[in-house]
Amino acid sequence: MSVFCQKCQKEAASVHVTEIAKEGSKVELHLCEECAKDHGMPVLQSPSVFALFKELMDKTNTVTRTRDRQCPQCNMTFGEFKAKGRFGCAHDYEVFLSRVIPLLERVHGASEHVGEGDSAAPAAAAGSPPPPARAAAPETSGELKRLRRDLQRVIKNEEYEEAARIRDRIQQIEKQLQDGGAADG
């Protein structure tokens, strides 16, 4: 594999492409970023997930401090929580959100509270009835929305293992929706 860009022969090749021609023959190209653009390489364009995941990948080599993340309020780390089984303050649920969600899923089989009329809930939420679960589609799209939100949050927190897990789940649901839509149509 060539180290330099096959086109300009100056820059290091960072984009590696395998083009398959109509006849079935393969052409390998090793280009620098500039030349790759000129060559008309498609830009990753799927809106949310891929852009977010690219952002995430760009950061991977700079950060590995997920495990040492600390709650700014009570100094709890997730490691300490795992050892003791008790959180230090209410903020921990938000600070360790990306790990709390799978934990709750494991323990409760759910990660969202269902509580109409909770005395402590904000007035608007307390009075409104729970959303009716009619068809599968609105539920799925609700889950997608939630997953995308979660993904943004874990990327912000630089928790990549969790991000990858959520990304896979999103792709799985998107595929299901597409397949389902095609079958119905």
Partner: peptide, 8 residues
Amino acid sequence: YHPRFGYL
């Protein structure tokens, strides 16, 4: 109280 998790 947390909007998603309920009583903490």
